[in-house]
């Protein structure tokens, strides 16, 4: 049980580090940007890319995209966040919405609208994680997250087919 909290703390610290790094960079270059979370997303991407190999090692082959998404919602999410995705919706044309009603990183922050504007920082890593995992499984996608009320969070996955 304790290793979960270790990772939560580690994640918050990671977010802090990236934000601070951004601020020092902002001072040096005197560019005015919005909050630059692309580094954080890339960290998530790299992590997801690598870990998916381990997670899917024992599993049988995925039949199709939907199968893969189901795996994400069940085994993948429980391996990382100790629970499954509460709701998966799709339009069968490449858009998937994964809803987690009690997202682990946000649940410790607040229960209401407080800190809503800071929530993007804490879901970026997971967006990258999803994107990286899907990329290694052969699905190129764009992942965004939407937080309306804490701690519930929706992840929008848009599969890119060309």
């Amino acid at each position: 049980m304790c290793d979960q909290s270790v990772f939560e703390i580690f994640h918050s610290e990671l977010v802090n580090y990236v934000i601070q790094n951004n601020e020092t960079q902002l001072k040096n270059t005197s560019k005015t940007h919005g909050e630059d979370l692309s580094n954080l997303e890339y960290i998530g991407f790299s992590t997801g890319f690598r870990i998916i190999e381990r997670l899917t090692r024992e599993l049988p082959r995925f039949r199709d995209e939907l199968d893969t998404m189901k795996f994400i919602c069940t085994d993948f999410w429980s391996a990382i966040y100790m629970k499954q995705i509460d709701n998966l919706r799709t339009n069968h044309q490449g858009i998937y919405v994964l809803q987690d009603n009690c997202f682990r990183y946000l649940s410790k922050l607040s229960n209401t609208k407080q800190y809503l504007d800071l929530s993007p920082r804490y879901v970026t890593f997971t967006c990258g994680l999803l994107r990286g995992s899907l990329a290694n499984l052969g699905i190129r996608s764009i992942v965004t997250a939407e937080v309306q009320t804490m701690p519930s969070c929706k992840f929008h996955i848009q599969v890119q087919r060309n």
Binding site: E53, T56, R57, L59, P60, R61, R63, N136, L137, G138
Partner: peptide, 29 residues
Amino acid sequence: ATDNRELFLGLLYALETHKIYGYVTNTKM
């Protein structure tokens, strides 16, 4: 075979001197 869920593909080639087996992961390695 659409219901082959295994990662192990089995014997690919049986040459005279060697046999070749294949295995594909979910990440297409």
